[in-house]
Write a protein that binds this DNA or RNA. Structure first.
Length: 109
DNA sequence: TACATGACTATCC
DNA sequence: GGGATAGCCATGT
């Protein structure tokens, strides 16, 4: 069963609009924590499958990061492209433009 | 309860 | 900008 922390992470992921991406740090910040590692762990479990846009989560490095789904990173990149986010050599193109930092959704504060 | 692991980030070089 | 090191919290054994 998913832990409350995971459910919070998944809720944050669902808030990510199509064609946009966010970082683990942004999610952690939205949840009011610095546990980016824990966020990555929670997303890695991802028992909610396609229900949660886990492929819209990328590291602050602007790269793709990792993906535990089928096809791994390849599928993650493909999904992003399908949503309008272009990827080149395992890196997000103009990723800062697609970046979604939960601005305005700070209901926790 | 304690130790080890992990889809990371920040800092230093 | 890129590589290496330390810090971080939650989860699983």
């Amino acid at each position: 069963m998913p832990t409350p922390f995971q459910k919070d992470v998944y809720k944050a992921l669902i808030l990510i609009p199509k064609g946009s991406v966010t970082t683990y740090g942004a999610i952690a910040n939205y949840l009011g924590t610095k546990a980016v590692r824990a966020v990555g762990t929670a997303v890695g479990k991802n028992p909610n499958a396609p229900q949660v846009p886990c492929h819209r989560v990328v590291p602050s490095s602007g790269k793709i990061g990792n993906y535990s789904g089928e096809g791994g990173v390849s599928t993650k990149v493909r999904l992003l492209k399908e949503e309008g986010v272009d990827v080149k050599d395992g890196k997000i193109v103009a990723y800062k433009c697609h970046l979604f930092a939960f601005e305005g959704l700070d209901d926790v504060v």
